[in-house]
Design a protein around this nucleic acid. Structure first.
Lengths: 331, 331
DNA sequence: TTGTAGGCGTTATCAG
DNA sequence: CTGATAACGCCTACAA
């Protein structure tokens, strides 16, 4: 910076102004400084900037991935891609963090913030409990939950897609097609997602005048676990006629189990997914699914966090994004 | 830091030592300082550290993802997960970057380094040309290529899996099973991967005594493009008996096209993939594939970059990781 | 084994 | 509109 100042014949403060508030300079000085900046290929040191500014233009994205989840969960990948692009547009940077065996979630989050590594965090912790969230809330660390918190009254920023509504739509769709024996191949019990899906389906069943049989089964959101469950379910004497899956990967297990049992989709058994990540393309017949547009989650979360970091005091974030049904040929 | 020093009754320098070189302190002082650190929950400010140290313990991972690639390419996701974990173990941080429409690759890389955002970069640019690489090399930006550079004589650090050997193995496997009419469903032309695969298969064909018919087709590494190609290929009068795919996603398109044409795998047509990411699980019958252990790429690359950043002067990185064949039931 | 002085590269504040 | 001065929080070098 001093080199630039010397070359331009101004003080270093003027160089700073040329970078941060060019409108405060006279056109002539600005031009001079800019030429010097280009000539020397000067780039401000962001470490020095955040030291002087006391603001860190970096967002941390936390994803507690295990090997299994990494391989099958395209949601995480899509999320990081979206957030990364959004950050870049605002001169922010995205940092990735994952679970650390010898440090609790909350401790890690606090540390990252106190070390000024990040200005705030985006958290995808499907199992973070109320106590942990409360602790984090009282610690001044800015954060946004991806997915809704277990206790809805908690005063916390979050974004989610409306999974309950999605499940409701999915169930209604099957009911309208005449199905009266429905199974929900759900996510693991500990995920709040799993509650949302169940309640959505149940509500649809209750709204239906006639009696409906409803079975819920928790999978691990992996192909292996889903396939095992579906094989058992299809072989059982009480095979449902319609299946709602938490995920398009699970829908593939329905297809496979049906193939093995020589059942046709949708004639013998119908499938609908409340979520479609990349597995969707591979499904045959084309999968009826709830289109969550989950890419929006990352955008909303990142946008909010950047405002918080820049001290723009945005209103609390309690966003539940709407979803819609896309009919394929599997129902 | 000053607060800690005051509380412990020492100078701030001693606090610094307690953090960075505890062995230089007497046990008594160290204990005192540590107690103060815990009491005040002190965490060093990393921005100040890198300013004073002139070293940035951050690694940038660049992935030029488009929407399509994001959804289908689990390689990228797996890579970021691996690197993220490895970084965390050494108190490094991973930052994610993607292509920016109004800035060239090289310009972006230089900027990130000059701004001291990252200490070095890991680059997954399947199409970066020799000129760009040369320009980057002469710019003092530390970087490691993921995948080999187009010009092998370029004096550049890189890690790759031995795709040529993998393709060679795959072709040999088919030849040993008696196939004499082989097709390679390859990656896009511009990727160096695509050359490697072709050369591996060709070598295997030449080594075979008898004449072998070999067809190469470039896909876009997406389900849609692969399926189109496979439908045409299977319908044509010169349908190959064995197919080598660049990817397990492409292997799924073979399966689908075969199903549609009522061909059985492996009796009527055999499939083998030179790479298996997460799609592998979904394939039926179990996919014969080259096991690249590509997770190792991220580890090797990150490990090297951290040494470079810490000025440990590691030897040049010219690593081509070995691969092995895993036989399934699709050949 | 510990403390002091000075600097890392930037910005805020206050004068002019 | 521009410049001087003092931080920002830490570390290196040197001195004691």
């Amino acid at each position: 910076m001093n080199d630039v100042a010397r070359l331009a014949g101004v003080s270093s403060q003027t160089v700073s102004r040329a970078v941060n508030s060019p409108n405060l300079l006279s056109p002539a000085t600005l031009a001079k400084v800019r030429r010097a900046i280009d000539l020397l290929d000067y780039h401000p040191n962001v470490a020095a900037q955040s030291l002087a500014n006391r603001t860190v233009k970096m967002i941390g994205l936390f994803m507690p991935f295990t090997q299994e989840q990494v391989k099958s969960n395209m949601f995480f990948h899509s999320l990081s891609a979206t957030v990364c692009q959004r950050c870049a547009q605002h001169d922010f940077v995205l940092q990735l963090f994952t679970a650390n065996p010898d440090e609790s979630y909350v401790r890690l989050f606090k540390r990252l913030y106190r070390e000024k590594r990040v200005g705030g965090l985006l958290l995808t912790c499907p199992s973070m409990n109320t106590k942990e969230i409360g602790e984090l809330r009282s610690s001044a660390v800015p954060f946004v939950l991806i997915g809704r918190p277990a206790a809805p009254d908690l005063d916390v920023d979050y974004v989610d897609v409306d999974n309950a509504a999605g499940a409701h739509m999915a169930a209604q769709h099957l009911l309208n097609k005449g199905h009266r024996d429905i199974a929900l191949l759900n996510a693991p019990k500990f995920m709040t997602l799993s509650e949302d899906l169940r309640s959505g389906v149940q509500r649809a069943c209750q709204e239906q005048g006639e009696p409906v049989r409803f079975t819920e089964i928790h999978s691990e959101l992996t192909y292996k676990s889903g396939l095992e469950i579906m094989r058992r379910l299809i072989a059982s004497d009480s095979r449902p006629t319609g299946i709602i899956t938490a995920d398009d990967l699970l829908a593939l297990t329905v297809k496979r189990a049906a193939d093995e049992a020589r059942l046709r989709i949708p004639e013998d058994i119908a499938v609908i997914s409340t979520f479609a990540s990349g597995w969707y393309d591979v499904m045959e017949p084309e999968l009826t699914h709830v289109d969550t547009g989950f890419e929006r989650i990352g955008i909303v979360a990142a946008e909010h966090m950047m405002k918080v970091i820049l001290k723009k005091n945005p209103p609390p974030l309690r966003t539940v994004l709407d979803v819609k049904l896309t009919e394929g040929k599997s129902t």
